[in-house]
């Protein structure tokens, strides 16, 4: 109940801040680009775009959102309300995942890609979005300015993005699947190019596990660095 209220509040806030509007514009931009790509390049570019923009948007926005709530002092009020830390965090994850999913589906749908596994696309964009939003909350805990936050995300981004090149394939590159971003990208590619059902299941379960672990860890970091100021 509290969680639902929190999610509704977050969504309303995001609409007011123009998230949805901006993503309409961005989606339109991608669609223009996509419409010019030949089919064989679209097959690579589309999953990459869906992965690199809508699915990762949480990391981009969450820093500002929390810094603002901190600045306005609202965070303090939430801390002394019955709203649990995990509810606060999960609410952020869910509300941003909704934007992710809507943008991912819109970009994919209007690119008229022939073979999309919509369920898999839904699952993979939710799981990816969750990981990056949680990562953002964790990075954010020690930051006071947006610039600090953006800088701190750079090493994490490198850590998450560089291994993705492993998908190009080289000896032992399969080992990189252990890195959540690689697993997520694999699942995302799978929803466009097809993937064995057991591989997809394994990846999804793995990513879900990572999400839960990260959630637990993020709650701890959040409580240590933001809730308690000792």
């Amino acid at each position: 109940m509290r969680l639902l209220h929190a999610v509704m509040a977050d969504i309303r806030f995001q609409i007011k801040q123009g998230f949805y509007l901006v993503y309409v514009i961005i989606t339109a931009m991608y669609l223009i680009i996509m419409s010019f790509l030949p089919d064989d390049i679209l097959a690579v570019a589309l999953p990459l775009v869906v992965f690199s923009d809508p699915s990762v948007l949480g990391l981009f926005f969450i820093g500002g959102i929390i810094l603002m709530e901190k600045g306005q002092g609202v965070l303090m009020v939430l801390v002394v309300s019955p709203l649990r830390s995990w509810e606060y965090i999960l609410s952020k994850v869910i509300s941003l995942a909704i934007v992710s999913v809507l943008a991912a589906i819109a970009i994919t749908y209007f690119s008229y890609y022939p073979t999309v596994n919509w369920w898999l696309l839904l699952v993979s964009s939710i799981l990816t979005s969750g990981i990056f939003t949680l990562l953002g909350i964790m990075i954010n805990a020690g930051c006071n300015t947006v610039n600090q936050y953006m800088l701190k995300t750079i090493p994490y981004m490198l850590l998450f993005i560089l291994p993705c090149f492993a998908l190009l394939g080289f000896p032992y590159s399969e080992l990189f699947t252990i890195i959540p971003s690689v697993a997520a990208l694999k699942l995302m590619l799978g929803s466009f190019h097809g993937i064995l059902w057991y591989e997809a299941t394994a990846l999804a379960v793995y990513l879900l596990g990572i999400n839960l672990l990260l959630l637990k860890f993020t709650v701890r970091v959040f409580e240590n660095k933001i809730v308690y100021q000792d």
Binding site: K16, Q72, G73, V74, M76, V77, V80
Partner: peptide, 12 residues
Amino acid sequence: GVAFDFPNLYTK
């Protein structure tokens, strides 16, 4: 119930 010494409100 807690009221801090400066207003903690959603300004928007």
